[in-house]
Design a protein around this nucleic acid. Structure first.
Length: 180
DNA sequence: GCTATGATCATA
DNA sequence: ATGATCATAGCA
């Protein structure tokens, strides 16, 4: 039941590659599961919008650690955001999970970064947990159908807002409301 | 120690 | 357009 979990080398690449390849994959936490339909890449270098842009701090150190770990933080005092750490140890870079299409165990909508963490009961307690061997699991979707990937600028940031680092499944109804 | 500030969302 | 609400970072 856990043979399809993505290996650590899946995450040991650039955030852009991982963000694209994450679309259509399944995320599981507790009884909740769903298909990742929208992501954003945050680069380790040259990306002023990334939390890692100003170096290692207590909060961002996991971003500089080995790939395949969760980075969770609280934003606006009320919402948690879930990221997957990419790149080899020593290099920052991560992928923000923005929207998920429910499969099971979901009682609230997940079309937005703050909403999906609430629907999946993800909090700071899951920060720095292992995606390969931990409470949050990411795996291939067996019956995955073909889909088109669209890109756009990232949402809700001020710096580097021009970069097309947001990826989402074209036409998917569960993509967050902002510019579909 | 103190203060400003968000990778958001719901409401109006 | 605005308010809710707090961990983090930057500065004194």
């Amino acid at each position: 039941m856990s043979k399809n979990i993505l290996p650590r080398r899946f995450y040991a690449r650039s955030p852009v590659e991982v963000a694209r390849d994450l679309l259509g994959k399944v995320m599981l936490h507790g009884t909740a599961s769903g298909i990742i339909v929208e992501t954003e890449a945050y680069l380790g270098t040259g990306d002023a919008a990334a939390h890692s842009a100003r170096g290692i701090t207590p909060r961002t150190k996991v971003l500089f650690g080995p790939p395949g770990f969760a980075y969770v933080y609280l934003i606006y005092g009320m919402h948690y955001c879930l990221n997957f750490v990419t790149e080899r140890e020593g290099r920052a870079g991560c992928v923000l999970i923005r929207a998920i299409q429910p499969i099971s165990g979901i009682t609230r909508s997940c079309n937005g970064p703050g909403k999906l963490t609430r629907a999946f009961s993800i909090t700071l307690a899951q920060n720095a947990t292992d995606l390969v061997n931990g409470p949050i699991q990411v795996m291939k979707y067996k019956r995955g159908e073909a889909f088109e990937i669209n890109t756009s600028p990232r949402i809700g940031i001020k710096k580097s807002a021009d970069l097309p680092l947001r990826f989402f499944i074209a036409g998917n109804a569960f993509v967050s409301n902002a510019c579909r």
